[in-house]
Design a protein around this nucleic acid. Structure first.
Lengths: 261, 261
DNA sequence: GCTTGACCCTGACGCTACGTCAACCCTGCA
DNA sequence: TGCAGGGTTGACGTAGCGTCAGGGTCAAGC
């Protein structure tokens, strides 16, 4: 005859756990000895181990009782469900593991590797840390919104970076971000000219097709624009300069119907 | 400016979750609009996504705040720990998955495949369902006690089953279990004779080395004996008959110093 | 006989990360 | 004007135990 401590030790659980199972009626209360101690037989050990097997598989205690008494076909069915849940959970954890693995690399925090790679390239072409940090935040938003399309978006971005004008643009923006440049800084205008020029080309080549773009989520792009302005209010000046040149928006540009005077 | 519902939807959480993070100070309370609604900027979305990334990796909320503000080296270190935990958890779940996969096969419930295979063989040689069920419970105990040695134990058991006397023994015990045989049933004696004979041989060949056996856990074997008696009180008669023949125990036999008269 | 330490008892509150009411306010629309 | 669909606070509920508090029991050693 076992005491509760021995029973618990044999099954690899705590005494509290055994008492809890008694409370909720999952394991029947055994007989007591003269001094009121619970005394268990060998079948209790087997019962407890069976309970723990299911509990370890993530089955709620409230279902284990029914499950252990169910007929074989019901049981097999339930086991299928449990196995499915386990598989999903494992997959979830593995996804999570990949995410934080990149996060260890330093840059990321909820970013796929393509993006961290892109950010690395930005650093190499001379973007400042503040600039990269701002980009990173933007990509966190995009990656959350289109987790399955982020790779193709990144591929396009990489191609764009082959254009020396874009490199120049990133450097200009980096300088501006790190300086306390005022509204009349000539670099602002140069940056706006580059952006407008590139937008023009993209428009001409049909890359900016008005309306039915694959990523037309106004909220998402409004958020990106808002993020830019929140991280540096001077971003609004750039938006204004772009507007003068006939473009609205910052992360996704739209040609204005009629350029303001 | 986002409402709490939009923020939550974008990050893939509930409003309650966002409010909870405010309560515990993990996410700063934003400004309110004229009607008292919370209004969020884009940075809040980024913060929330970062928090969820860590939370999904199993990091307690109470640590996430510190973690997000930690310096890179501390952070990288923490990420290592988190990754370790994730790895362990995945491994745990996969073990659990294997266990319940066999459980689906019907027999098991916390049993490795070697054992279910052995039980199948018992059925084929003519053991009754009650007999197999009793054996199964015993193996659940053994598998819990020596999970790493169960394979070699099973291998030995399989060899033993090649002996036709053991087959005969299992059939006898099955019949007795399924009948309402009394104390004077001749099959009891025959079974005891077989057990004693086999024990004698094992002893002669040195398989029963007194004392320093690899599996000398008195509790475990006492449990097994108790289990037998609990599942059918007539097992005690067999124990008595064996004692007359100079052997103590049931699952692990010991030669008595002096055969009782 | 007495102490000491290991074990057991019940009852109750604590914990994490929210879910889920209840009771109310604000806004836009048919 | 009422109604649906947002939002607000406050408070209690949930799972699976952990962790006290405040006792009693048992075996051993002095």
């Amino acid at each position: 005859m076992l005491t509760i401590g021995q029973l618990a030790a044999y099954a690899g659980v705590t005494m509290r756990t055994v008492r809890h199972y008694h409370q909720i009626g999952l394991l029947p209360e055994p007989q007591r000895d003269a001094s009121g101690y619970r005394r268990y037989g060998a079948t209790a050990v087997v019962s407890l181990i069976r309970i723990r097997t299911l509990a370890n598989a993530g089955v709620p205690l409230s279902q284990i009782g029914r499950l252990l008494e169910a007929d074989p076909s019901t049981f097999a069915e339930a086991v299928q469900r449990i196995d499915g849940h386990l598989r999903d959970e494992i997959e979830r954890l593995e996804t999570s593991r990949k995410q934080i693995a990149q996060l260890a690399a330093g840059d990321s925090l909820a970013l796929p590797p393509e993006v961290t790679c892109y950010l690395e390239r930005l650093r190499r072409i001379g973007a400042s840390e503040r600039m990269v940090a701002a980009e990173r935040n933007g990509w966190i938003l995009l990656a959350a919104r289109w987790p399955d399309h982020i790779r193709e978006i990144m591929a396009a971005k990489h191609v764009q970076l082959d254009d020396p004008r874009l490199v120049r643009l990133y450097r200009l923006l980096s300088e501006l971000l790190d300086s306390d440049a005022g509204k009349d800084d000539p670099r602002l205008k140069e940056a706006a000219d580059i952006m407008a020029g590139m937008a023009e080309e993209a428009y001409a080549s049909g890359e900016i097709d008005s309306g039915d773009a694959p990523y037309d989520d106004d909220l998402a792009f409004d958020l990106l624009d808002a993020l830019a302005i929140e991280s540096d209010p001077r971003a609004r000046w750039m938006v204004d300069l772009m507007r003068e040149r006939g473009w609205a928006g910052w992360n996704r540009m739209e040609r204005l119907a009629q350029p303001p005077d």
